[in-house]
Design a protein around this nucleic acid. Structure first.
Length: 402
DNA sequence: ACTCCACAGGAATTGAGGGGTG
DNA sequence: CACCCCTCAATTCCTGTGGAGT
């Protein structure tokens, strides 16, 4: 018997549950689709496209619907020999207009002619980008997915929509479709950017439990063998996801993971219990990933809190954490950061849900401050941090103190 | 109602590390 | 090689804040 063999107990195929799966038909988003169609209709007559701002929380179908719409638009345009090109830019790891401009340029270029991500002056990159856009003919639709990542730095959102008017681009029309899951992002845009970018808006509401149920059922039919799922599994996944985020991604992940666990246990049916386990595992994975990606000093900060926690001396305030952090950093042979910086790290760790914090105010005697405590299992923290060799013996020393 | 503590968090700046051109 | 560009963690400096004590 080999190391591997086909497994036919649970999954036919996991593909329909994966994040990158593109279904033929989009479920439960008819309204948004028809809004898109109405707005983009003029493009078919060769008129300049309107800029669109699509917003809604993660996993509510913004990207899926947008891809689906542009795919259809392109196919239909082809039939009538209308020139349309599209670029879908994921701004997930892009934090400035500069980086987005580089990415757009590279997306439109051949692979071997990609430009470097740093080094050029900003204006040069913008010019390269406009050149590349100009090379396309007809209408160019640029999707900026998760555009909120660029934060304050919204130069590109000002430049792109005006490129034609200003003469940087002559032979094509540009349409920008911004996608954001941060609802405040739109408000924080400068007025001149907001007016042009959010010419048209499409709002994606969270899915409710019923909508999730129907999405899950469709996918599950393809993914699982018949009668593998217990009756209440899909409703439970739908309910958990609807209550938490209304995200289809979360619901699908849950279902996939529940199946995974069933297979691991060599069970031939997926039960509600597995769904609940999957829910817990998901949370654990999220925290683990968060910790792994912390910088050395953020980890040292976290270990300082953990040290207090071991002795039951939580919650603690930054004023007390800082000296402890210094001690631990010295032991780890790292130089110590400023108090202000540790204050930022603590803030960041709290936002990620790794720490808990609570505001205190004792008036005249000391004004206001935060108190922190661990919001995560100690062993999970230690196990994860132990893998970072830069921290040497520190995690194991702390472990022994437990 | 007013005061006043000291911390939270914004703003400006730096310097090392990625890379470019000529 | 010299000189220029962008990014990001970190530093320094500083103002705004909320409520216990008066």
């Amino acid at each position: 018997m080999g190391l591997f063999e086909p497994d036919e107990s649970i999954f036919r195929t996991e593909t329909p549950l994966r994040e990158d799966y593109e279904p033929e038909d989009i479920e439960e988003r008819d309204e948004e689709i028809s809004e898109y169609v109405d707005i983009l209709q003029p493009v078919m007559n060769g008129d300049p496209p309107k800029n669109i701002f699509a917003y809604g929380k993660t996993g509510v179908g913004k990207s899926e619907v947008t891809k689906h719409i542009l795919q259809n638009l392109k196919e239909d345009a082809d039939k009538y020999e209308i020139d349309i090109s599209t670029a879908h830019i994921s701004c997930e790891n892009l934090t400035s207009s500069y980086q987005v401009a580089v990415e757009i340029t590279n997306e439109l270029r051949e692979d071997k002619e990609r430009i470097s991500e740093t080094g050029y002056p900003e204006q040069k990159v913008f010019n390269l980008m406009y050149e590349e856009i100009d090379r396309q003919e007809g209408t160019v639709l640029i999707v900026l997915d998760e555009i909120d990542n660029i934060g304050e730095n919204d130069k590109i959102l000002y430049g792109l929509p005006r490129a034609v008017a200003k003469g940087y681009v002559e032979s094509s029309n540009i349409g920008v479709i911004g996608i954001s899951n941060d609802l405040e992002f739109r408000e924080n845009l400068s007025a001149k950017v907001r007016d042009t970018l959010a010419e048209e808006e499409i709002h994606f509401p969270p899915y409710d439990a019923n909508e999730l149920k129907s999405i899950l059922s469709k996918r599950a039919e393809k993914a699982f063998y018949d009668d593998v799922l217990n009756e209440d599994v899909i409703p439970l996944c739908a309910a958990l996801a609807a209550r938490d985020s209304g995200s289809a991604r979360q619901a699908l992940e849950l279902l996939n993971k529940a199946g995974d666990i069933a297979r691991r246990n060599e069970d031939d049916s997926v039960t509600e219990e597995y769904v609940r386990k999957a829910q817990k595992e998901r949370e654990k994975d999220r925290i683990e990933e968060g910790i792994e990606n912390l910088t050395t000093h953020a980890k040292l900060t976290l270990l300082s809190i953990l040290d207090f926690d071991i002795k039951g001396e939580v919650p603690v305030r930054n004023a007390d954490v800082y000296p402890r952090y210094k001690k631990i950093a010295n032991k780890a042979d790292a130089d110590t950061l400023s108090k202000r910086r540790i204050h930022d790290h603590l803030s960041q760790l709290s936002l990620q849900g790794i720490l808990n914090r609570e505001k205190k105010n004792i008036g005249r005697q000391g004004g206001s401050y935060y108190i922190y405590e661990l919001n995560t299992d100690m062993d999970l923290v230690l196990n994860t941090i132990e893998q970072d060799s830069r921290l040497g013996e520190i995690p194991s020393i702390l472990r022994e103190k437990r």
